[in-house]
Design a protein around this nucleic acid. Sequence first.
DNA 1: CTGAAAGCGCTAACAT
DNA 2: ATGTTAGCGCTTTCAG
Lengths: 338, 338
Amino acid sequence: MSVRRRPTLRLVADRAGVSPSTVSRAFTRPELLAPETVERVRAAASELGYVADVYARGLRSGRRGAIGLVVPDIANAFFPPLIRAAQAAAAAHGLTTVIADSDEDPANEPGLVEQLGAQTDGVILVSSRMSADQIVEVGRRRPLVLVNRDISELPHVLIDSAPGMRQALEHLAGLGHRSVAYASGPATSWSNGQRERALRAGAAELGLRLTVLPHRRPSQEAGHAAAAEVLAAGATAVVAFDDALAQGLLVGFADAGVAVPETVSVIGCDDTIADVTAPALTTVHGPTRRAGELAVQLLMDVVGAPAAGDGHRPAVAVVPAHLVVRRSTAELAAGPGA
Amino acid sequence: MSVRRRPTLRLVADRAGVSPSTVSRAFTRPELLAPETVERVRAAASELGYVADVYARGLRSGRRGAIGLVVPDIANAFFPPLIRAAQAAAAAHGLTTVIADSDEDPANEPGLVEQLGAQTDGVILVSSRMSADQIVEVGRRRPLVLVNRDISELPHVLIDSAPGMRQALEHLAGLGHRSVAYASGPATSWSNGQRERALRAGAAELGLRLTVLPHRRPSQEAGHAAAAEVLAAGATAVVAFDDALAQGLLVGFADAGVAVPETVSVIGCDDTIADVTAPALTTVHGPTRRAGELAVQLLMDVVGAPAAGDGHRPAVAVVPAHLVVRRSTAELAAGPGA
DNA sequence: CTGAAAGCGCTAACAT
DNA sequence: ATGTTAGCGCTTTCAG
C-alpha cells in the first residue's frame, strides 16, 4: 500500500539497452527512430509500467499538456455538455483539461485565468462576466479563447441564438399569436442583448407586437414574478431568456390558474431542463457541444501559431441555435388577451 | 500579444538583493525568514508579476499541488455540487482540482485514475462502476479516496440513504398508505442496494407492503415504463431510485390520467431536479456537498501520512440523507388501490 | 538513426 | 536567518 516510486526514463533506457534520449524520442518523436527500436523501448516501458512524468516534461519542454476552462458555475446545466465536449476534443489532442469555476463572480475570473494560464498551454473562458477591457488584458499574457463573448481582439466562438429566436417568432405567428413578450435576462449578458435584438427585428418583420420585460436574473423565482407582467402586457405568448426563467413562468402561470399552452404559450432558451418541465418546454437549442469543440480547436490554432496575432486577426466561429418544438406552445384558441 | 517569457525566481532574487533560496522560502516557508525580508521579496515578486512555476516546483518537491476527481458524468446533475464542494475544499488547501469524466464507462476508469494519479497528489473516485478488485488494484499505486463505494481496504465516504428511506416510509405511513412500490435502479449500484435494503427493513417494521420492481437504468424513459407496474402492484405510493426515474413516473402517471399526489404519491431520491418537476417532488436529499468536502479531507490525511495504511485502517465517513417533503405526496384519499 | 551533455525553474540539504 | 550546491526527470541541441 505504501506509494512506491515511479520508474524513470533512465530505468527504461537501461532495460532496453539504449540511451535516455532514445527513450524520450520513442514517445515524442518516434518517426526519428528505427521502428524496431521504438518497439523495443515501448515494450521495456510497458513492462516497467513507465509513464512519463508530466512535470519534468512540462518543465523542460515548456509545453504543459493541458488546457484550462473557466466557467461561471459547473452546476448550471448549460455548461456541463460544453465542458464534456471540450474535454473530449482536448483529449483527442493528447491534452488534459483543468476546469475552474468562478462561482458567478467576475472578480474571481482574472485570478483563475492567471492561475490556469500558468499551468496550462492556454485557456478557454466561457460566458465571462468581466468587462471587455479586463478580458483583453488577461488575454495579453497567455493564449485565450472566449465562448459567448464578442470581442474582436480575441478568438472566440459564439452561439448565435438569432436564427432560433426568429424561428420562435415564426412558430408563434403561425399559431395565430400577435402579441409576444420577451422576459429578459441579465443586462450585462451578451447573449441577452443578442436575443433581444433578434426578437425586435423578427417581430417588426412579422408584424408582431413585442413587449420587452425588465432585466432579470435567470432564475426560476424571477420567472415566477414575470408571469403577471406577461398577462398585464396583453401578450398571448412569451419567450424567456433561458429555461430557468421559462420554468418560473410555467409555475407562475399555473399558480395564477392560467393554462399553458391553451391560454398562453411559453418558449425557453438553452434546452437545459426542457424535457423535465410540465408541459415540456418548446425551447431554442444551441449547439453547446459543438461550441466546446470549436473553442478547443481555436485554442490549438493560437497555441500552434509561432507568434500569434501579429499578422492574422483572431479567428471567430459562430454556430446557430434553432427552435425545438415541444408542448408549451399551441394555437391561439379563443381570444384571452385584453 | 506575443507570449512573453515569465519572470523566474532568479530574477526576483536579483531584484530583491537576496539568494534564490530566500525567494523560494519567502513563499513556501516564510516563518523561517525575517519578516522584513519576506516583505521585500514579495514586493519585488509582485512588481515583476512573478508566479512560481508549478511544474518546476512539482518536479523538485514531488508535490503536485493538485488533486484529481473522477466522476461518471459531469452532465449528471448529481455530481456538480459535489465537484464544486471538493474544488473549494481543495482550494482551501492550496490545491487545484483536475476533473475527469469516465463517460459512464467503467472501462475508462483505470486509465483515468492512472493518468490523474500521475499528475496529482491523489485522486477521488466518485460512484465508481469498477469491480471492487479493480478499484483496490488501482488504489495500490497512488493515494485514492472513494465516494459511494463501500470497500474497506480504501478510505471512503458514503452518502447513507437509509435514514431518508426510513423517513420516506414513515411519511407515507403517516399519510395512510399501506402498499408501497420501489422502482429500483441499476443492479450494480451500491446506492441501489443500500436503498432497497433500507426500504425492506423499514417496511417490515412499519407493517407496510413493499413491492420491489425490477432493476432499471435511472432514466426518465425507464421511469415512464414503470408507472404501469406500480399500478399493477396495487401500490398507492412509489419510491424511486433517483429523481430521473421519479420524473419519468410523474409523466407516466400523467399520461395514464392518474393524479399525483391525489391518487398515487411519488418520492424521488437525490434532490437533483426536484423543484422543477410538476408537482414538485418529495425526495430524499443527500449532503452531496459535505461528501465532497469530506472526501478531500480524507485524501489530505492519506497524502499527509508518511507510510499510509501500514498500521491504520482506512478512514471512513458516512453522511446521512434525509427526506424533503414537497408536493408529490399526499394523504390517501378514497381507496383506489385494488 | 542514436548518444552525450546541458539545462528547464525550482527546492532541499548542507553550510555558514 | 540566509547563501551554496546539487539535482528532480525529462527534452533538446549538438555531434557523430
